[in-house]
C-alpha cells in the first residue's frame, strides 16, 4: 500500500494543496482533472522529478522521498519527445543497459512485437503519438514495474488503440498485483478500468473514492423521471442538483436515506457536479 499524505507544492500561478490519497496493489486509480489541475505535479512528485514542500509518501509504512526509492516504478507520460533522432532499438538498448537487472528482454519483445505490433527499427521522430506511447510503455513494462504511473498516456491515442492499451493496463494491475495511478482528462477511459477515482481541481482534491461508491452516491435523473417524483422529493433533488445536458445530477445523500431515483451518474456528470460546487 502506498499512502500519500498532505503533499504541497507552490508555483507562481498554481498551488497543490494537501493532496492525500492511497494507491492499493492490484487496483487502478484514476487521477482526473482539467489541464493544469495538478495531475502531472502529483505524478512528478511521486517519481521524484519535483520536490514537494511538505507531505509524506509512505510505502508499507516507510517514509520515502519518492516511490522509486522503494519500488521499481514504471512511468510513461504524454511528453515523449525523447531522443527523437535515435532509433527505437538504440534507445531500448540504452534503457536495457541501465536497468540491466530488472530488464526482461522477452517481456519487451512480447509487448513491442506481439501486443503492440511494432518493430524497433524506426526513429523515434518517425513514430506517431500512439506508437510512441506503445514503445515507451513496452520499455517500462519490460522492467516488471512494482508500481505504474501514467500521465495522460491515452490522450493521443485513437479509440481502438486506447481500448487495447486500457485492457493491457487492467490485466497488468490484476495479474501482477501492482498499483497503477493513471492521470487523464478522459473520463470514459477511467470509467472503463479505474477502481478508485481521485478528482483534482485547481490543486485541490475534491473527490477520492471508489468507482463503486461514486456510482452509489451520485445519480442522474431526466426531466420526465423528475416529474414522476413526489413534490417534496423533487424539491430536495432540485435544491441539490446541477443540470447536465438533459439530466439533473444530484448527490443521493441529499435524499436522507431514501431510495434514489434515476440511474447512477456518469463520471463526467459527477465531476461537473463537484466542480460546480454543489
Amino acid at each position: 500500500m502506498i499512502e500519500i499524505r498532505s503533499l504541497n507544492k507552490t508555483y507562481k500561478s498554481f498551488k497543490l494543496n494537501n493532496a492525500s490519497f492511497d494507491l492499493a496493489s492490484g487496483k487502478v486509480t484514476g487521477l482526473i482533472g482539467v489541464n493544469g489541475a495538478g495531475k502531472s505535479t502529483i505524478l512528478k512528485i511521486l517519481i521524484g522529478l519535483v520536490k514537494s514542500e511538505s507531505g509524506e509518501i509512505l510505502i508499507d509504512g516507510d517514509n520515502v522521498s519518492d516511490i522509486g526509492e522503494k519500488l521499481r516504478v514504471g512511468f510513461v507520460s504524454q511528453e515523449l519527445n525523447i531522443y527523437s533522432n535515435q532509433k527505437m532499438s538504440a534507445v531500448s538498448a540504452f534503457v536495457k543497459d541501465v536497468y540491466r537487472k530488472e530488464w526482461k528482454d522477452d517481456l519487451y519483445r512480447h509487448y513491442l512485437l506481439d501486443v503492440f505490433e511494432l518493430s524497433d527499427d524506426l526513429k523515434i521522430k518517425e513514430l506517431s503519438t500512439g506508437m510512441r506511447v506503445k514503445f515507451f510503455l513496452a520499455m517500462e513494462l519490460a522492467k516488471k514495474p512494482e508500481c505504474l504511473l501514467l500521465d495522460e498516456v491515452t490522450s493521443g491515442l485513437d479509440p481502438m488503440i486506447r481500448d487495447e492499451v486500457l485492457d493491457i493496463l487492467l490485466e497488468i494491475a490484476r495479474e501482477d498485483d501492482i498499483p497503477i495511478l493513471m492521470s487523464s482528462h478522459i473520463t470514459e477511459d477511467l470509467e472503463k478500468i479505474a477502481d478508485e477515482i481521485i478528482y483534482i481541481d485547481s490543486g485541490r482534491i475534491l473527490l477520492s473514492d471508489s468507482v463503486e461508491n461514486i456510482r452509489k452516491n451520485y445519480y442522474r435523473i431526466s426531466e420526465e423521471e423528475l416529474n414522476e417524483l413526489s413534490e417534496e422529493t423533487r424539491n430536495v433533488v432540485l435544491g441539490k442538483c446541477i443540470k447536465q445536458h438533459q439530466y439533473y445530477v444530484y448527490d443521493v445523500s441529499s435524499l436522507g436515506g431514501g431510495e434514489p431515483a434515476g440511474s447512477p451518474a456518469l463520471l463526467s456528470d459527477v465531476l461537473s457536479y463537484l466542480r460546480k460546487g454543489k
Binding site: 517519481i47 521524484g48 522529478l49 519527445n81 534503457v95
Partner: peptide
Amino acid sequence: DTRDFIRRM
C-alpha cells in the same frame, strides 16, 4: 522530456 527521462533513471 529527455531531461526528465534521464533524471528518472
